[in-house]
Design a protein around this nucleic acid. Structure first.
Lengths: 246, 246
DNA sequence: CGAGCAGTTGAGAGATGTCAAATACAGTGG
DNA sequence: CCACTGTATTTGACATCTCTCAACTGCTCG
């Protein structure tokens, strides 16, 4: 069952029964992974594409001095390595943050989808380009937002992305990652992340207890973060399909 | 003439004469733009795809407080808005840094290429995914590299990318941007960029006079930056084509 | 109950920002 | 060719942000 993936695509695309049926058939098995487990490592040439079903994973790189940089969060409905399937060698690693369920899809199956199902081909392009848009927003956050705004912005982004796959309520979600993970995301020390988090709590913008995040006033947090969800491109396009309309 | 674009693709792909001929036919005109001119603005829905022929351009966003974040450099051979052509609304702006020559390609022409020329379709996927890989490297630079290493890394990256389109010698190139542009790239103040630049000069890692950059010892700079060009995926893949091989 | 990891706190060091002024440089009009 | 003007670069002084180190607390799980 690829529910979160299909759910995500259906925000943007109208899938035919054939499209949905094709998606239901792609799985070549499901794996259960514990927290902090690598799914793919930098340098590998993956034979399969992995789809996150549940839990939090991330793209990351380790630098020569041992520090880690988290480059993206992967949540239910996200594909781990379309890039690896197409570029060949992975230029970064993918690993779990929390325990995860992962669907394994043979590389050829994905390629067949793109050639035989135009809408799905379009949808895969869309998912890659949205991932790129998220990356751009992270660059902006790292480069030009204050630490507290940056953190708030990421919490808003995760809220909206989780809502799109039915893993968040209107104002809360499970965030099964540590402050250390947040540090490697924000490019800060864990000590400083702790203080920034306390600052957001003090302003009543977030309530984070254990792994549960709840947001007393979503609009207030979005305003504080200057969050504009346009870059997630979840709504149907104001222009039709990519595909020639005939 | 799409020379830099074709030159870039041929590092990685073997284009047929038909492929090359198709690429030669895509231009619907060329525009000459001065420095600091917008090519596309956030919110627009582009009808054309723009290809940089000469000069430096960038993707950027302006934040509510007026500060600018540069998200990517676009150099000769780079497409400005494949994303806009597919996602619809632009979620960021594209503008020139130096004067630029830009080739205009109708959106439909690009779509036709992807459906009628499998190798070119693959090549376009590749160019999008490499752009994403560059973005990941920028996230790492912003998050976890020191300011001087980050700057050095970007200078290495631009060196290799310009070499791939014949716009750099083995150890030098024209860098027609200001220190202010570098600040918005590195997420630093212009004052600090100036000091970091002086630091690199003091270490004899770079010689930057006016707009000409020359690198006394390329290996030394790459070592200092911990630069590994794997993420640019310029060499032919260790696996064959994306396309089903039949 | 104890071990270990995550979270928190305090103090001082280092990096980077801001402000303001001085210098260098490029392009323009006379 | 020169003076003039506006922009880019450079410098200094001081403020702020973030880091490091080290200790302490609290929670979870075996």
């Amino acid at each position: 069952m690829l529910n979160p993936f299909i759910q995500k695509l259906e925000h943007r695309f109208t899938l035919s029964d054939a499209d949905r049926a094709a998606l239901e058939r792609v799985s070549a098995g499901e794996r259960r992974l514990g927290p902090r487990a690598d799914i793919i490592r930098e340098g590998e040439i993956p034979d399969h594409v992995y789809l996150i079903q549940s839990g939090f994973a991330c793209r990351y790189k380790i630098l020569p001095n041992g520090s880690r940089s988290i480059i993206a969060y992967l949540i239910p409905g996200d594909l781990c390595d379309l890039n690896g399937a197409i570029l060949g060698e992975m230029d970064h690693s993918v690993g779990t943050l929390s325990a995860c369920n992962v669907v394994v899809i043979p590389r050829e199956t994905i390629l067949d989808l793109t050639t035989q199902y135009p809408t799905l081909n379009h949808a895969l392009w869309w998912s890659v380009l949205v991932e790129e848009a998220i990356l751009r927003e992270w660059v902006v956050g790292l480069g030009r937002r204050s630490a507290d705004q940056h953190l708030a912005h990421i919490l808003c982004e995760v809220l909206v992305r989780l809502q799109a796959v039915g893993h968040a309520t209107v104002d809360s979600y499970e965030l099964p990652i540590t402050q250390g993970d947040l540090s490697d995301t924000l490019g800060l020390s864990n000590v400083h992340v702790n203080r920034v988090l306390q600052e957001l709590r003090r302003k009543d913008l977030v309530v984070l207890k254990g792994k549960s995040l709840s947001i007393p006033n979503v609009d207030a947090l979005k305003t504080f973060a200057e969050f504009n969800p346009n870059y997630l491109h979840l709504k149907p396009s104001r222009r039709g399909s990519l595909l020639p309309q005939r």
